[in-house]
Amino acid sequence: MKTLITALLVLATGSAHALNAAEYQSGLAAAAKSAEPGFAGFSAQRGENFYRSTHGGDWSCATCHTDNPAASGTHTVTKKAVKPLAPAANPARFTDVDKIEKWFKRNCNDVLKRACTPREQGDFIAYLLTVK
């Protein structure tokens, strides 16, 4: 009976252990290694360049998330407020794998017109983790 209740509690409240950005990033490292044989680790500098680049289109990450990922942003079309992206400023970021994958899929399509690679995603998180 006790086991059943515990199982139900876990079901009702979500998993006991919340993910964080560094843990998600370590999963990306494995994917990057298999995608790129010469992969030598993530780079916060590359991540920052990626964050600020418009990648040949109209928008960059900074268009909505602002030049400072620790600040609140504004959706460029609807003007709705966007909460800070950097985990130091918003601890809820990168704690839910479904949300992480959903937003990478959508926003990479919007900014780059393609999916982001595991290395790009890992660099991006490396940069965000340097923002205090």
Binding site: V77, K102, R106
Partner: peptide, 11 residues
């Protein structure tokens, strides 16, 4: 996936 100019796709 083409929601008024942005990707709003869902599972």
């Amino acid at each position: 996936d083409k929601h008024y100019g942005v990707d709003a796709s869902l599972e």
